[in-house]
Design a binder for these strands. Structure first.
Lengths: 156, 156
DNA sequence: GTAGAACCTCAAGAATGGTTGAGGTCAAGG
DNA sequence: CCTTGACCTCAACCATTCTTGAGGTTCTAC
Protein backbone atom coordinates (compact mmCIF):
# COMPACT_ATOMS: atom_id res chain seq x y z
CA UNK A 1 0.00 0.00 0.00
CA UNK A 2 2.75 2.35 0.90
CA UNK A 3 4.50 1.16 -2.18
CA UNK A 4 1.49 1.75 -4.28
CA UNK A 5 0.95 5.25 -3.00
CA UNK A 6 4.60 5.99 -3.52
CA UNK A 7 4.31 5.02 -7.17
CA UNK A 8 1.26 7.14 -7.57
CA UNK A 9 3.02 10.08 -5.95
CA UNK A 10 6.03 9.54 -8.14
CA UNK A 11 3.91 9.84 -11.23
CA UNK A 12 2.30 12.96 -9.86
CA UNK A 13 5.65 14.55 -9.22
CA UNK A 14 6.92 13.70 -12.65
CA UNK A 15 3.67 14.88 -14.11
CA UNK A 16 3.33 11.78 -16.15
CA UNK A 17 -0.11 10.90 -17.41
CA UNK A 18 -1.83 7.60 -18.01
CA UNK A 19 -3.89 6.96 -21.15
CA UNK A 20 -7.09 7.45 -19.23
CA UNK A 21 -5.95 10.80 -17.88
CA UNK A 22 -4.87 11.98 -21.29
CA UNK A 23 -8.11 10.79 -22.81
CA UNK A 24 -10.18 12.69 -20.26
CA UNK A 25 -8.13 15.86 -20.49
CA UNK A 26 -7.85 15.88 -24.23
CA UNK A 27 -11.42 14.85 -24.78
CA UNK A 28 -10.65 11.87 -26.98
CA UNK A 29 -11.21 8.14 -26.51
CA UNK A 30 -8.47 5.87 -25.27
CA UNK A 31 -8.81 3.90 -28.47
CA UNK A 32 -8.08 7.05 -30.42
CA UNK A 33 -4.88 7.55 -28.47
CA UNK A 34 -3.82 4.00 -29.24
CA UNK A 35 -4.60 4.70 -32.85
CA UNK A 36 -2.67 7.97 -32.96
CA UNK A 37 0.29 6.21 -31.44
CA UNK A 38 0.11 3.43 -34.02
CA UNK A 39 0.08 6.10 -36.71
CA UNK A 40 3.11 7.79 -35.22
CA UNK A 41 1.31 10.97 -34.22
CA UNK A 42 2.08 10.67 -30.54
CA UNK A 43 4.55 8.68 -28.50
CA UNK A 44 4.55 7.18 -25.03
CA UNK A 45 6.94 5.77 -22.51
CA UNK A 46 6.02 2.55 -20.80
CA UNK A 47 5.78 1.88 -17.09
CA UNK A 48 7.38 -1.39 -15.97
CA UNK A 49 3.90 -2.86 -16.06
CA UNK A 50 3.58 -2.04 -19.72
CA UNK A 51 1.13 0.79 -19.17
CA UNK A 52 1.58 3.91 -21.23
CA UNK A 53 2.99 7.03 -19.65
CA UNK A 54 2.72 10.37 -21.37
CA UNK A 55 4.58 13.60 -20.90
CA UNK A 56 2.57 16.78 -20.61
CA UNK A 57 3.35 17.89 -24.12
CA UNK A 58 1.14 15.15 -25.49
CA UNK A 59 -1.85 17.30 -24.59
CA UNK A 60 -0.66 20.06 -26.84
CA UNK A 61 0.09 17.60 -29.57
CA UNK A 62 -3.43 16.26 -29.40
CA UNK A 63 -4.87 19.75 -29.34
CA UNK A 64 -2.92 20.48 -32.49
CA UNK A 65 -4.14 17.28 -34.09
CA UNK A 66 -7.73 18.25 -33.39
CA UNK A 67 -7.27 21.72 -34.77
CA UNK A 68 -5.63 20.41 -37.89
CA UNK A 69 -8.39 17.86 -38.37
CA UNK A 70 -10.97 20.57 -37.97
CA UNK A 71 -9.09 22.44 -40.65
CA UNK A 72 -9.54 19.40 -42.84
CA UNK A 73 -6.13 17.76 -42.81
CA UNK A 74 -5.83 14.01 -42.81
CA UNK A 75 -3.85 12.28 -40.09
CA UNK A 76 -1.20 11.47 -42.65
CA UNK A 77 -0.77 15.10 -43.48
CA UNK A 78 -0.64 16.03 -39.84
CA UNK A 79 1.99 13.40 -39.25
CA UNK A 80 4.06 14.78 -42.09
CA UNK A 81 3.87 18.22 -40.55
CA UNK A 82 4.84 16.78 -37.18
CA UNK A 83 7.79 15.06 -38.78
CA UNK A 84 9.33 18.47 -39.29
CA UNK A 85 9.22 19.26 -35.59
CA UNK A 86 12.49 18.82 -33.69
CA UNK A 87 13.03 15.28 -32.52
CA UNK A 88 15.44 16.00 -29.74
CA UNK A 89 13.60 18.54 -27.63
CA UNK A 90 10.05 19.28 -26.68
CA UNK A 91 8.76 21.58 -29.39
CA UNK A 92 8.70 25.22 -28.42
CA UNK A 93 5.92 27.68 -29.02
CA UNK A 94 7.88 28.85 -32.04
CA UNK A 95 7.95 25.35 -33.47
CA UNK A 96 4.20 25.08 -33.16
CA UNK A 97 3.82 28.55 -34.59
CA UNK A 98 5.48 27.50 -37.80
CA UNK A 99 2.99 24.69 -38.18
CA UNK A 100 0.12 27.01 -37.40
CA UNK A 101 1.23 29.55 -39.95
CA UNK A 102 1.23 26.94 -42.70
CA UNK A 103 -2.17 25.71 -41.71
CA UNK A 104 -3.53 29.21 -41.52
CA UNK A 105 -2.60 29.74 -45.13
CA UNK A 106 -4.30 26.51 -46.04
CA UNK A 107 -7.35 27.53 -44.11
CA UNK A 108 -7.39 30.86 -45.92
CA UNK A 109 -7.30 29.11 -49.24
CA UNK A 110 -10.17 26.83 -48.33
CA UNK A 111 -12.24 29.66 -46.96
CA UNK A 112 -11.67 31.44 -50.23
CA UNK A 113 -12.84 28.41 -52.20
CA UNK A 114 -15.91 27.91 -50.08
CA UNK A 115 -16.78 31.57 -50.24
CA UNK A 116 -16.57 31.44 -53.98
CA UNK A 117 -18.73 28.35 -54.04
CA UNK A 118 -21.30 30.07 -51.88
CA UNK A 119 -21.31 33.17 -54.04
CA UNK A 120 -21.71 31.13 -57.18
CA UNK A 121 -24.47 29.19 -55.51
CA UNK A 122 -26.23 32.37 -54.52
CA UNK A 123 -25.83 33.77 -58.00
CA UNK A 124 -27.22 30.62 -59.54
CA UNK A 125 -30.33 30.31 -57.41
CA UNK A 126 -33.17 30.01 -59.79
CA UNK A 127 -31.04 30.67 -62.82
CA UNK A 128 -31.65 27.21 -64.14
CA UNK A 129 -28.15 26.88 -65.51
CA UNK A 130 -26.92 24.24 -63.14
CA UNK A 131 -26.35 21.57 -65.72
CA UNK A 132 -24.82 23.76 -68.38
CA UNK A 133 -21.17 23.88 -69.13
CA UNK A 134 -20.87 27.60 -68.65
CA UNK A 135 -22.43 27.59 -65.20
CA UNK A 136 -19.94 29.07 -62.72
CA UNK A 137 -21.27 26.77 -60.06
CA UNK A 138 -20.44 23.59 -61.88
CA UNK A 139 -16.98 24.86 -62.52
CA UNK A 140 -16.59 25.91 -58.92
CA UNK A 141 -17.58 22.45 -57.83
CA UNK A 142 -15.10 20.93 -60.22
CA UNK A 143 -12.32 23.15 -58.94
CA UNK A 144 -13.01 22.06 -55.42
CA UNK A 145 -13.31 18.47 -56.51
CA UNK A 146 -9.89 18.45 -58.10
CA UNK A 147 -8.03 18.85 -54.88
CA UNK A 148 -9.24 15.78 -53.08
CA UNK A 149 -11.59 12.86 -53.10
CA UNK A 150 -14.59 12.10 -50.95
CA UNK A 151 -15.86 14.33 -48.23
CA UNK A 152 -12.46 15.71 -47.43
CA UNK A 153 -12.73 19.39 -47.87
CA UNK A 154 -9.59 21.05 -46.70
CA UNK A 155 -7.05 18.37 -47.33
CA UNK A 156 -3.65 18.61 -49.00
CA UNK B 1 -28.13 -2.07 -89.95
CA UNK B 2 -31.07 0.03 -90.80
CA UNK B 3 -32.64 -1.26 -87.64
CA UNK B 4 -29.59 -0.46 -85.61
CA UNK B 5 -29.28 3.05 -86.95
CA UNK B 6 -32.92 3.57 -86.28
CA UNK B 7 -32.38 2.69 -82.64
CA UNK B 8 -29.52 5.07 -82.38
CA UNK B 9 -31.55 7.82 -83.99
CA UNK B 10 -34.41 7.08 -81.67
CA UNK B 11 -32.22 7.64 -78.68
CA UNK B 12 -30.89 10.84 -80.19
CA UNK B 13 -34.38 12.15 -80.76
CA UNK B 14 -35.49 11.31 -77.28
CA UNK B 15 -32.27 12.75 -75.91
CA UNK B 16 -31.63 9.73 -73.82
CA UNK B 17 -28.12 9.18 -72.63
CA UNK B 18 -26.10 6.05 -71.98
CA UNK B 19 -23.95 5.66 -68.86
CA UNK B 20 -20.85 6.35 -70.84
CA UNK B 21 -22.27 9.56 -72.22
CA UNK B 22 -23.39 10.73 -68.83
CA UNK B 23 -20.04 9.84 -67.33
CA UNK B 24 -18.18 11.84 -69.96
CA UNK B 25 -20.48 14.83 -69.77
CA UNK B 26 -20.70 14.92 -66.02
CA UNK B 27 -17.05 14.20 -65.50
CA UNK B 28 -17.55 11.22 -63.20
CA UNK B 29 -16.68 7.55 -63.59
CA UNK B 30 -19.24 5.03 -64.74
CA UNK B 31 -18.70 3.19 -61.49
CA UNK B 32 -19.66 6.33 -59.62
CA UNK B 33 -22.91 6.48 -61.55
CA UNK B 34 -23.67 2.89 -60.66
CA UNK B 35 -22.90 3.74 -57.09
CA UNK B 36 -25.11 6.83 -57.03
CA UNK B 37 -27.92 4.79 -58.46
CA UNK B 38 -27.46 2.10 -55.83
CA UNK B 39 -27.64 4.85 -53.21
CA UNK B 40 -30.83 6.21 -54.69
CA UNK B 41 -29.32 9.50 -55.81
CA UNK B 42 -30.11 9.05 -59.47
CA UNK B 43 -32.43 6.79 -61.42
CA UNK B 44 -32.34 5.26 -64.86
CA UNK B 45 -34.63 3.60 -67.33
CA UNK B 46 -33.50 0.44 -69.00
CA UNK B 47 -33.25 -0.25 -72.69
CA UNK B 48 -34.61 -3.66 -73.74
CA UNK B 49 -31.01 -4.84 -73.66
CA UNK B 50 -30.71 -3.95 -70.01
CA UNK B 51 -28.50 -0.95 -70.65
CA UNK B 52 -29.17 2.17 -68.65
CA UNK B 53 -30.85 5.13 -70.27
CA UNK B 54 -30.85 8.50 -68.62
CA UNK B 55 -32.97 11.55 -69.13
CA UNK B 56 -31.23 14.87 -69.52
CA UNK B 57 -32.05 15.99 -66.02
CA UNK B 58 -29.60 13.48 -64.65
CA UNK B 59 -26.82 15.85 -65.63
CA UNK B 60 -28.21 18.55 -63.42
CA UNK B 61 -28.72 16.09 -60.64
CA UNK B 62 -25.11 15.05 -60.82
CA UNK B 63 -23.97 18.65 -60.97
CA UNK B 64 -25.95 19.29 -57.82
CA UNK B 65 -24.44 16.24 -56.16
CA UNK B 66 -20.96 17.50 -56.92
CA UNK B 67 -21.72 20.94 -55.60
CA UNK B 68 -23.20 19.57 -52.43
CA UNK B 69 -20.23 17.27 -51.93
CA UNK B 70 -17.90 20.19 -52.40
CA UNK B 71 -19.91 21.95 -49.74
CA UNK B 72 -19.18 19.00 -47.47
CA UNK B 73 -22.43 17.08 -47.47
CA UNK B 74 -22.41 13.32 -47.39
CA UNK B 75 -24.24 11.38 -50.06
CA UNK B 76 -26.81 10.38 -47.47
CA UNK B 77 -27.55 13.99 -46.69
CA UNK B 78 -27.78 14.82 -50.36
CA UNK B 79 -30.18 11.97 -50.86
CA UNK B 80 -32.35 13.23 -48.04
CA UNK B 81 -32.46 16.63 -49.65
CA UNK B 82 -33.34 15.03 -52.99
CA UNK B 83 -36.12 13.11 -51.32
CA UNK B 84 -37.94 16.38 -50.89
CA UNK B 85 -37.92 17.07 -54.60
CA UNK B 86 -41.15 16.31 -56.48
CA UNK B 87 -41.42 12.71 -57.58
CA UNK B 88 -43.90 13.18 -60.33
CA UNK B 89 -42.30 15.82 -62.51
CA UNK B 90 -38.83 16.81 -63.50
CA UNK B 91 -37.71 19.30 -60.87
CA UNK B 92 -37.95 22.91 -61.93
CA UNK B 93 -35.38 25.61 -61.42
CA UNK B 94 -37.40 26.69 -58.43
CA UNK B 95 -37.18 23.23 -56.89
CA UNK B 96 -33.42 23.28 -57.22
CA UNK B 97 -33.32 26.80 -55.88
CA UNK B 98 -34.89 25.68 -52.63
CA UNK B 99 -32.16 23.09 -52.20
CA UNK B 100 -29.50 25.60 -53.06
CA UNK B 101 -30.80 28.12 -50.57
CA UNK B 102 -30.58 25.60 -47.76
CA UNK B 103 -27.08 24.64 -48.72
CA UNK B 104 -26.02 28.23 -49.01
CA UNK B 105 -26.98 28.76 -45.40
CA UNK B 106 -25.02 25.69 -44.44
CA UNK B 107 -22.06 26.92 -46.40
CA UNK B 108 -22.30 30.27 -44.66
CA UNK B 109 -22.24 28.61 -41.30
CA UNK B 110 -19.21 26.52 -42.16
CA UNK B 111 -17.37 29.48 -43.60
CA UNK B 112 -18.08 31.28 -40.36
CA UNK B 113 -16.67 28.39 -38.33
CA UNK B 114 -13.57 28.10 -40.45
CA UNK B 115 -12.99 31.82 -40.35
CA UNK B 116 -13.20 31.76 -36.61
CA UNK B 117 -10.80 28.84 -36.50
CA UNK B 118 -8.38 30.72 -38.70
CA UNK B 119 -8.63 33.86 -36.61
CA UNK B 120 -8.07 31.93 -33.42
CA UNK B 121 -5.16 30.17 -35.04
CA UNK B 122 -3.66 33.47 -36.12
CA UNK B 123 -4.19 34.93 -32.68
CA UNK B 124 -2.56 31.94 -31.07
CA UNK B 125 0.57 31.82 -33.15
CA UNK B 126 3.41 31.90 -30.77
CA UNK B 127 1.20 32.45 -27.77
CA UNK B 128 2.11 29.08 -26.35
CA UNK B 129 -1.35 28.46 -24.99
CA UNK B 130 -2.37 25.67 -27.28
CA UNK B 131 -2.76 23.01 -24.66
CA UNK B 132 -4.46 25.13 -22.04
CA UNK B 133 -8.13 24.99 -21.29
CA UNK B 134 -8.70 28.65 -21.90
CA UNK B 135 -7.11 28.65 -25.31
CA UNK B 136 -9.67 29.88 -27.84
CA UNK B 137 -8.15 27.62 -30.45
CA UNK B 138 -8.74 24.44 -28.53
CA UNK B 139 -12.28 25.44 -27.93
CA UNK B 140 -12.75 26.37 -31.56
CA UNK B 141 -11.50 22.97 -32.58
CA UNK B 142 -13.84 21.30 -30.13
CA UNK B 143 -16.78 23.26 -31.43
CA UNK B 144 -16.01 22.16 -34.94
CA UNK B 145 -15.38 18.65 -33.77
CA UNK B 146 -18.77 18.36 -32.17
CA UNK B 147 -20.67 18.55 -35.38
CA UNK B 148 -19.26 15.53 -37.12
CA UNK B 149 -16.77 12.73 -37.02
CA UNK B 150 -13.68 12.16 -39.10
CA UNK B 151 -12.53 14.44 -41.83
CA UNK B 152 -16.01 15.58 -42.70
CA UNK B 153 -16.01 19.28 -42.37
CA UNK B 154 -19.30 20.65 -43.52
CA UNK B 155 -21.59 17.79 -42.79
CA UNK B 156 -25.03 17.77 -41.20
C1' DG C 1 -6.87 -10.41 -0.35
C1' DT C 2 -10.24 -9.36 -3.28
C1' DA C 3 -13.43 -6.61 -6.18
C1' DG C 4 -13.61 -3.52 -9.76
C1' DA C 5 -11.52 -0.13 -12.57
C1' DA C 6 -8.06 0.69 -15.73
C1' DC C 7 -4.80 -1.10 -18.60
C1' DC C 8 -2.69 -4.31 -22.31
C1' DT C 9 -2.69 -6.63 -27.35
C1' DC C 10 -4.59 -8.00 -31.40
C1' DA C 11 -8.29 -8.79 -34.64
C1' DA C 12 -12.43 -7.61 -36.53
C1' DG C 13 -16.03 -4.40 -37.65
C1' DA C 14 -18.22 0.01 -39.15
C1' DA C 15 -19.21 4.10 -42.16
C1' DT C 16 -18.04 6.67 -46.30
C1' DG C 17 -17.27 6.87 -51.27
C1' DG C 18 -16.06 4.82 -54.38
C1' DT C 19 -12.74 1.51 -57.77
C1' DT C 20 -11.32 -2.91 -59.72
C1' DG C 21 -11.95 -7.31 -61.57
C1' DA C 22 -14.22 -11.51 -63.18
C1' DG C 23 -17.28 -13.39 -66.18
C1' DG C 24 -20.50 -12.55 -69.58
C1' DT C 25 -23.88 -9.80 -72.94
C1' DC C 26 -24.89 -6.20 -76.41
C1' DA C 27 -23.97 -2.86 -80.10
C1' DA C 28 -21.76 -0.81 -84.15
C1' DG C 29 -18.77 -0.94 -88.00
C1' DG C 30 -16.19 -3.26 -91.67
C1' DC D 1 -19.68 -12.81 -89.51
C1' DC D 2 -16.65 -11.04 -86.47
C1' DT D 3 -14.18 -7.90 -83.76
C1' DT D 4 -14.05 -4.23 -80.58
C1' DG D 5 -15.86 -1.31 -77.33
C1' DA D 6 -19.49 -0.33 -74.24
C1' DC D 7 -22.39 -2.29 -71.10
C1' DC D 8 -24.24 -5.64 -67.43
C1' DT D 9 -23.96 -7.78 -62.37
C1' DC D 10 -21.89 -8.96 -58.30
C1' DA D 11 -18.28 -9.40 -55.16
C1' DA D 12 -14.13 -7.93 -53.44
C1' DC D 13 -11.10 -4.45 -52.36
C1' DC D 14 -9.04 0.37 -51.06
C1' DA D 15 -8.21 4.30 -47.74
C1' DT D 16 -9.55 6.77 -43.71
C1' DT D 17 -10.53 7.05 -38.78
C1' DC D 18 -11.62 5.04 -35.43
C1' DT D 19 -14.61 1.68 -32.16
C1' DT D 20 -15.67 -2.78 -30.25
C1' DG D 21 -14.71 -7.09 -28.39
C1' DA D 22 -12.12 -11.03 -26.66
C1' DG D 23 -8.99 -12.59 -23.55
C1' DG D 24 -5.82 -11.46 -20.15
C1' DT D 25 -2.85 -8.34 -16.66
C1' DT D 26 -2.23 -4.59 -13.32
C1' DC D 27 -3.64 -1.03 -10.08
C1' DT D 28 -6.13 0.93 -6.36
C1' DA D 29 -9.02 0.99 -2.52
C1' DC D 30 -11.44 -1.14 1.06
Amino acid sequence: MVEVKAKSAERAVRRELSVGEVARRAGVAVSALHFYEAQGLIRSQRAPSGHRRYGRDVLRRIAVIRVAQAAGLSLKEIEQAFARLPEARTPTAKDWARLSAGWRDLLNERIRQLTRLRDDLTGCIGCGCLSLDQCPLRNAADRLGESGAGARLLAE
